[in-house]
Every structure is written in structure tokens, then in C-alpha cells.
Amino acid sequence: MSGITFENVTVAYGRTVVLDALDLTVRPGEVMALLGPSGSGKTTALRAVAGFVQPASGRVLIGDRDVTALPPHRRGVGMVVQQYALFPHMRVDANVAFGLKARKAPRAGIAARVAEALEMTGMTAYARRYPRELSGGQQQRVAIARALAVRPDVLLLDEPLSALDARLRSGMLAELARLHRELPDVSMLYVTHDQVEALTLADRVAVMDSARLQDCGTPHDLYRRPRSEFTASFVGDANLLPVTVTEGGADFAGTRLDVPPAGDVAPGASATLCVRPHLLALGAGPNTLRGTLTELQWRGATHRLCVDVAGHRVKADVRELREAPPLGAEVALHFAGEDAVLLPTGVARG
């Protein structure tokens, strides 16, 4: 049972730094999601663990073993990638047995381990097929079975579900969660740019942007108490309002808002107030924003309102309205102070 540790890992291609001094620990048995927009360096971080890129500086540890200088085949990690990468010239069972044979596992045990891995992923019936005879979802299951058959301590998954359609994806997501319950000792590093996957599956989420780790915490923390504008807007939907911090609150376009103070922003400074759209309610209340309704979308269970408040677009998701106000109407929105978070104003938003 071992986790993964990045110690100050920097990766550069030529002069471009694509991973900047990453410090991150995946605890033994934990599922860590690496979430971030395209090009933020997630795959690079994963490949540094697998051994396919060499860090310019820093160390990668698996358990307490420094693997930075080890070739990929000595690292003992399982890896599942978006394109499945099943060996097209081998049947499913040979694919799953590949790692065991490569590691010279005793012949007698191989068949049992293959059967076990196929069973776990529900692919027993397809053992004698070639990969091209399988659907995308089935191929991905085989890829997972292949990675699990060698019983790695660490499983690296690089957007394993992004080649699948939405329904299959949610099914596979549930399966991955089940697999993790069955294998509580395996640490997983799960790269994705899909926040739903990250929030559903992960014990903790690391948010990356432009080669840097922005934030790391439990999904709940990141959602409720984001620490940066980037996290707030990337994990879930957010209203980010420019405010001036006052004693015991904030001032937004002349409206005093009663919100909990933040440690790193002093009174008088400008900051960003983050309020989730679904935490805004219609009508006047403790913290009220008044403006003109500019957009109204019916989304089944909810209505999405866009209100122009002193030139800022404020989004609110409210339970479906019996009688929606007409566009152009003056509306009031309010929110509970403890539902809002004051953030330091981002220098550059990713």
C-alpha cells in the first residue's frame, strides 16, 4: 500500500515549462482527481509518475521509493489512457495476461489472475475476442482489467472516460467507484477535465491551471470554500463579483454585503466575492442585489435568471417559477452571508 508524492516536480519541453514545481501527495488508498483545463499539465504530471517524461528537477516517490530515475517498466504502476491502447494483435485474455507474463509471474497463477480481473470488470464473456471486436466502453473495461491484473499499488488514469458517450460515462463512473471500494488499497490518480467526474469519484481534487497547482482539497471544500477565482469558476458555476472589503463585510457597487471576512484580504482592498448561482434566491433578504432581468431560461426543474446589477451579470438558479417576471423587470436577489466567499482578486484568470 503506497501513495504518490510529487516533490517540487518541474517538467519543461525545451524552454516551455509545462509543469511548474508541483508539490502534491496522493495518500495510500486515496483517489485524487487532477482537474484542469486543456493544456494545464495534467497528463504531464501523470506521465512523470509513469516515467514517460523526465522531470527537469524534483522527485517523484511511489510509497517511499524514489522512482524519478527508474525506467517505466520498473515503477509498478498501472496506467489507463483515453485511447485504451489495447494490443490489437492479442485477444482480450492475452491483453490482460500481458503484464503478468512480462513480470514473469508463475504460469499457474496467471489464468486465475486474468479471470479475476475480467470478472471484476465484467468482461469474462469477452475473453476470446480481439479488441477490434469490442465497443469503446468494453475496450476501456479491458484496459482497466489489464492494469489491475498486475495488482499495482498505484493506478494512473488519464481521461479514461472521455472517449465514451455521456450515458456510458456515468455508468463507468459508478463502476470505477465500485472498483475502488473493492480495492481500497490502490491509490488512484485520475486526470480529467470534467468536474462531475472529479467531484463524484475523488476523495480529493487537485485543480491545475497553466502548469501550476491552484488548489487542492476535498470536493466539498473546493466547492464550498474555493481559495481562488480559478477554482471557484472551474469547480461548479460561480458569480464572481468585484467588491471592496470593509470592516465585517464587503461593498459591491454601493451595496453593503454582510459576508464572512477572509484571512488574506484586508479591509479597503479590492477582492472578488464568489456566490454560487443556486444559493441566490428571489426577493429581498439579508444581502440583496437589485437589478434588471436580462435573460430567463427554463431548465426544467429550475429557472436560470441573469440579472444586470450595476453593470455586472449575476446568474441565479431558482426553483422553477410559477410566474416568471418579464424580461426587463426590476428584480431583487438575496443570499445568506455564509454562502458567499471572499477571494483575493486573481491577477490573470486562466
Binding site: G51, V81, Q83, H89
Partner: peptide, 29 residues
């Protein structure tokens, strides 16, 4: 030849010689 196959094989613990014999050469056949 897509490098994902070699990389998948290497991450499964196959030495370069094993990768060549069991993955690369068969795919190049």
C-alpha cells in the same frame, strides 16, 4: 506506430526487449 502501445506495455512491467518482441515487432509485421 502509435507510442501508446509501447508505453502501455512498459507501464505493465515489460522490459524494452519484451516490448520489442511482443508488441512492436508484431505490430510492425
Amino acid at each position: 506506430l502509435d507510442p501508446v502501445y509501447e508505453q502501455a506495455a512498459a507501464s505493465l512491467g515489460a522490459s524494452p526487449a519484451h516490448v520489442l518482441r511482443r508488441v512492436k515487432l508484431p505490430l510492425l509485421l
